[in-house]
Every structure is written in structure tokens, then in C-alpha cells.
């Protein structure tokens, strides 16, 4: 009989296809793991409504569990409470930065309005500037560093 904890460990092997250094656990999208007899239900919260990665993530969760002999898996969506970057793990944020994406800098209730300071993930300078609210995906904004002149993505607080 498999336990919730064992499944949680397996989910550490399921990565976000858009940001392949983050696992679903790092993202904080796994809301619940429900085991009834030999059936497993994984409840996830979508990051953004139209995020094309969610479909892929659900498929990857099934494949990962199947490869460990768990055949009856259902992935369901829970919209409320809405996912927030506050649920992202600290180790997830560190991995993001090493990968070259500035991690969310603030908790939602501590957002400084338009005065967000976003350090460059390359040279760590705080002399950076917003280029566009939307980057390569809905969850990211596009910044540039005025110090090292590199552009970079910022995983925005949401």
C-alpha cells in the first residue's frame, strides 16, 4: 500500500516543461494527494488559466506514477484558492535564480507597487529595469540589467 509521503517523493521527479528546473512541488501547485484503495487522485492548482504546461504536467504526473506501478491515477484541478507564487518553495526559488530566471521577490501582501526591486540573476545588480509586463510566458515579465546589460526573465509575483 503506497502512502501519501511516497507519492509526494515521486512528484519531486515531475518537472515543469516550461521551466525544467522546477518540480511541481517547487511550484507549489500540488494541493492534495488522495488515496482511496488503489486509486490515487492528485489535486493540482493551475498557475495561469491558459497555461499550456498544465495539460503536459498532468500527463507527466500520470506517466511518473505509472512507471512506479501506480496505474489508477486521476489528476484533478482546483481553482480556489487561486495559486500564488507565495506557495513556491525556497529551494525552488534558488533553482530558478541559478537557471537565470529572477525568482519572485515579494510575498503578495508585501508588494511595493511599482517599486519592485528585481536583482539581475546574472550579476546580482539591483540596477535593473522592466521592459515588458509579459515575457516568454504569462508567468514571467521581461527585464534588463543596466549593469551587465543582459536581458532576463522575472517570475513575477502573482
Amino acid at each position: 500500500m503506497i502512502t501519501k509521503q511516497e507519492i509526494a517523493v515521486l512528484l519531486e521527479q515531475v518537472f515543469d516543461p516550461e521551466v525544467p528546473v522546477l518540480t511541481v512541488q517547487d511550484l507549489g501547485i500540488v494541493r492534495d494527494i488522495i488515496i482511496v484503495n488503489d486509486e490515487v487522485e492528485i489535486v493540482i492548482s493551475p498557475t495561469y488559466s491558459g497555461c499550456p504546461a498544465m495539460h503536459m504536467i498532468a500527463a507527466q504526473i500520470k506517466v511518473e506514477l505509472l512507471s512506479h506501478g501506480i496505474e489508477k491515477v486521476k489528476v484533478t484541478e482546483q481553482l480556489s484558492p487561486a495559486w500564488t507564487t507565495d506557495w513556491m518553495t525556497e529551494s525552488g526559488k534558488q533553482k530558478l535564480e541559478l537557471y537565470g530566471i529572477a525568482p519572485p521577490q515579494y510575498k503578495l501582501n508585501k508588494l511595493p507597487g511599482d517599486k519592485e526591486v528585481v536583482p539581475c540573476p546574472q550579476c546580482k545588480s539591483t540596477n535593473t529595469q522592466l521592459v515588458s509586463q509579459y515575457g516568454s510566458t504569462a508567468c514571467k515579465a521581461l527585464y534588463k540589467c543596466n549593469q551587465c546589460l543582459e536581458p532576463f526573465d522575472y517570475f513575477k509575483c502573482h
Binding site: S49, C51, V131, Y134
Partner: peptide, 20 residues
């Protein structure tokens, strides 16, 4: 390019909401 990407992202949000 930035505007193009922004509009596509906004469009995707709207399609996502519609889908729900």
C-alpha cells in the same frame, strides 16, 4: 516583439478562463 508576446499571453489567459 514585446507587445506581440504580451497580447498573445493575454489572449491565452482569456482562452483559459473561457475554457474553465
Amino acid at each position: 516583439l514585446e507587445v506581440d508576446m504580451a497580447l498573445s499571453n493575454i489572449s491565452l489567459d482569456e482562452l483559459g478562463a473561457a475554457r474553465s
